[in-house]
Design a protein around this nucleic acid. Sequence first.
DNA 1: CACCTGATGTCAGCTCCTGTCATCACGTAG
DNA 2: CTACGTGATGACAGGAGCTGACATCAGGTG
Lengths: 188, 188
Amino acid sequence: MGRWEPDARGRLAKAALALYAERGYEQTTVAEIAKRAGLTERTFFRHYADKREVLFAGAGELEGLFVGAVAGAPESAAPLDALTLGLDAVAEMFADRREFACRRQAVITANAELRERELIKLASLAAALTGTLRGRGVAQPAAGLAAEAAVAVFKIAFERWIVPAEERPMRELIRESLAELKAVTSGA
Amino acid sequence: MGRWEPDARGRLAKAALALYAERGYEQTTVAEIAKRAGLTERTFFRHYADKREVLFAGAGELEGLFVGAVAGAPESAAPLDALTLGLDAVAEMFADRREFACRRQAVITANAELRERELIKLASLAAALTGTLRGRGVAQPAAGLAAEAAVAVFKIAFERWIVPAEERPMRELIRESLAELKAVTSGA
DNA sequence: CACCTGATGTCAGCTCCTGTCATCACGTAG
DNA sequence: CTACGTGATGACAGGAGCTGACATCAGGTG
């Protein structure tokens, strides 16, 4: 055993999610999170930039996966087809994390500050996708619009996937949302 | 003359924008804003919920205008056509406020916290548009996707309108973005 | 004149977050 | 084996954002 219990970061994340869920984000102090993880407040801020970020550590992974899949699409693929590959890759990643995603999302939707943070992560994703499309030769503003549209599809499919009543696979919901988007933008 | 100088709210907003532009958002304290407006810190927080909100007082107006135009579209209009009427209404509103919008946007884009707040205002707009479309009989998820797409069009048109080099009318940029969105979603 | 109202000032206090320095197990060089 | 460096952590002070509670006081109202 080392000098400290291992995985301080993970313990902080777990403690934070638990407390945010138990008593609400605003009613939880960083000192309490740290205490539950057996650490101090100062150490919390060494692992996470702020009180919100502890819930968004996985965002970078999602972005990397999405961008990677789009970048790896065949050169001949149209922008929306490349983005669809990215959406599929993301869907796969979510497949076995439904319960965790649900608890986490319940906390986020319950608080405006956390929703703000979530939105900027999605915006960062859109920006990264825009850059990737541009690297594939797509011009502006088409690249930006396609990226925003793909993120909207992800957002809405995710919203429906989270609903406990549905229980449908993420991939299916994404295909449906994509089809709806095409219908609604071409229909007018 | 009343007991106090009139328009405390407006004075605070003006002082805040000036200071944020001068020395940056983070380097400005609320006490400084209040002092420049001839008020106290406590009074600032009576007018604005937090240090960011002072830049977003007009967001409600934008949302109302957009939603009103969509709601007032002919019943026969397709979702995207109704949304286009909303986009046009918004474009008109921006027409004579370019300089103010530029200064404000420069401050916002320079700071992540302010971008977060901007994003949640846009999300609120998308939610309001979704509700309006649903009121017009559009089902989910089509309503949500159409709303998100319209907000994406607004976002990207606005980005281009702000660029000093361009100087093209907002309405024209919106039409262009809309056409690009249709092209990119139907082309694949 | 007495009273109420509403915008503001004053003050105490919590929480978030940061800078700085101390601590101390572990690894490594000698 | 000792000495030293390293890296994660603790301890402490302090600024800034934000809130609650109470005081103040010009104006309107009876």
